[in-house]
């Protein structure tokens, strides 16, 4: 009995499901995380409070609970045209954005204050200072933790499998329901996750070395 070959289409579907969840949620989380980080260091108090609330709320809520809210509560509050996939992306990206925000913020803090002062004294606005001067310099320190966060995101996406989104973990459930040897299923599922996480690590290693050369 060959679990993988017998069910290749299923594995493929699950693998692509996890890749799509990770890629889409990761992209949204990155944008959202940087924006919220900007809020947190902004000179406007309401934005700072919003950023702090966002991080506190999302970082301290178990992801499973966020999924329950996204999948079971939000549709009852009117978001009933959203698909399970979209709701899962919403939960995953909001959750991950809180962590990315904090990674970016710590990166911002590693850039010396003088850089921001120099930019401001040239007449740059807050957003210009952040975009042109601070973030590019923060990128290198921020890359390794963000890589880890995206790897964590790939693995966290398994929770979506319990909420009607087809991904690698649903493959495991489907196949063990059919009675295949659970160890073999897990082995292949694990390998599939490894492919995704290795890919993410490789991309980030590449970015790190490229940035190192550019300096």
């Amino acid at each position: 009995m060959n679990v993988l070959l017998d069910n290749f289409a299923l594995f493929r579907e699950g693998f692509l499901g996890t890749v799509e969840l990770t890629a889409l949620s990761g992209a949204i989380a990155l944008v959202l995380g940087v924006v919220i980080a900007a809020f947190r260091v902004s000179p406007v108090p309401p934005l700072r409070y919003f950023g702090a609330a966002w991080v506190t709320l999302l970082r301290n809520t178990p992801l499973t609970l966020l999924f329950f809210i996204a999948v079971l509560v939000l549709p009852r509050l009117g978001m009933n045209t959203w698909s399970f996939f979209q709701l899962a992306v919403l939960a995953l990206s909001c959750y991950t954005s809180a962590f990315i925000c904090e990674a970016v913020r710590s990166g911002i803090n590693t850039v010396s204050l003088g850089q921001a002062e120099a930019a401001r004294s040239l007449g740059m606005t807050f957003t210009q200072t952040l975009r042109l001067i601070i973030l590019p310099q923060a990128t290198r320190t921020v890359l390794p933790p963000i890589g880890s966060l995206l790897i964590a995101l790939a693995k966290n996406s398994a929770i979506a499998g319990g909420f009607s989104v087809f991904e690698l973990f649903s493959v495991q459930k489907t196949l063990s329901e059919q009675g295949y040897n659970i160890f073999l299923i897990f082995l292949w599922v694990a390998i599939a996750y490894l492919i995704i996480t290795f890919f993410i690590s490789a991309v980030f290693r590449f970015l790190e070395t490229r940035l190192a050369v550019a300096r």
């Binding site: 003088g114 002062e117 120099a118 930019a119 004294s121 040239l122 001067i133 310099q137 300096r215």
Partner: peptide, 16 residues
């Protein structure tokens, strides 16, 4: 601020 030039003790050139 664009009309007021500033030179710092620690230069603060944009490192990147």
């Amino acid at each position: 601020r664009a009309d007021v030039g500033m030179v710092f003790q620690s230069f603060n050139l944009f490192a990147h």
